[in-house]
Simulated assay, not measured.
Amino acid sequence: MIEPSLHAARGPVGAALLDLATGRWTLLDPIAATLLDLPAAGAERDAAIEDATARWAATGAAPDRVRGDLTRAAADLDRLRAGRPVHQSPPAPTPIVLFAPAARPSLRDRAAAGIGLAAALLLLRAVPIRHVVTVARLSARLPGRPAGVREAEAVLAAVRTAGAWWPGRVACLEESLACHLAAALTGRRVRWVLGARFAPRGAHAWVETGGHVLGQDDHDRPWPYLPVLTISDSNA
């Protein structure tokens, strides 16, 4: 059996890890983030920790504190990894962030949005996140083409209209997954992205197309999130 994977991404203020076995996030500060590049426990890693300690001490950090923080964080990371590989996302360019979608959905968009939202709500409430990701990857393999920005905004607007009829909460995870699934049903593809921010700490889910992040809140200027796991036709 394949173990649910760990996904990580590094940014200028640290690293974020998503454990698909549990759906939990771990955020590392810049010092602890260097552990992602270190070998497993042993003499080689001890030497790497000493090297990292010396580098940080050269910037004015207290060596004993850096060494202690790295040693404790390394032990925590070992327990988290449990021998599993960590899939690190390459650095991503800063996206163009769009806010309230302006496009008007067609009847086809509305029908697909209803199905996509129902599927997203069922999946996220009934199965672990690793299985949700599997379904999202499978949907990215459906025949289709990348959605244009206006097309993707129309699907997102249709999902939000459908979500207004749902008596429960439709948060970013449900909404973005529903948009990803609905777009696939209409023969178009958007990228479903799971990521995190560091200040304040929090996780987020969104959809992208053509280098644009769609339908975000106005207070997310500039874009604060680090993409950790991206589902699209290129990595399905």
Rank of each mutant, 00 (worst) to 15 (best):
M1A: 13
E3K: 13
P4T: 11
A9K: 12
P12K: 10
V13S: 15
G14I: 01
A16H: 03
L18V: 13
L20V: 05
G23L: 03
G23E: 02
G23P: 07
G23N: 03
W25H: 08
T26G: 06
L27K: 06
L27S: 06
L28V: 07
L28Q: 01
P30I: 05
D37I: 07
L38E: 15
A41V: 12
E44G: 07
A47I: 11
A48L: 08
E50G: 15
D51S: 15
A52F: 06
W56Q: 08
W56N: 04
A58C: 09
T59Q: 15
A61M: 12
P63C: 01
D64Q: 14
V66W: 05
D69L: 09
L70M: 02
A73D: 10
D76T: 14
D76E: 15
D78W: 09
L80V: 10
R81E: 13
R81W: 13
G83S: 05
V86A: 04
A92K: 09
P93N: 11
P93D: 13
T94C: 09
I96K: 13
I96H: 15
L98D: 14
R110Q: 08
G116V: 03
L122V: 14
V127N: 11
R130F: 10
T134V: 15
V135N: 09
A136I: 06
L138H: 14
S139C: 14
A140V: 02
R141K: 14
P143E: 01
R150S: 15
A154R: 00
V155C: 03
V155D: 00
V159G: 00
A162S: 04
G163E: 00
P167N: 04
G168K: 06
R169I: 11
C172L: 03
C172P: 10
E174R: 00
S176A: 12
A178E: 00
L185A: 07
G187F: 01
G187T: 02
G187Y: 02
R189M: 07
V190D: 02
V193Y: 05
R197V: 07
P200S: 06
P200L: 03
P200N: 04
R201D: 08
G202M: 01
G202L: 00
A203S: 14
V207R: 00
E208G: 07
G210F: 06
H212F: 12
L226E: 01
V228F: 02
I231T: 06
I231H: 03
S232Y: 09
D233M: 08
N235Y: 11
N235S: 14
A236R: 05
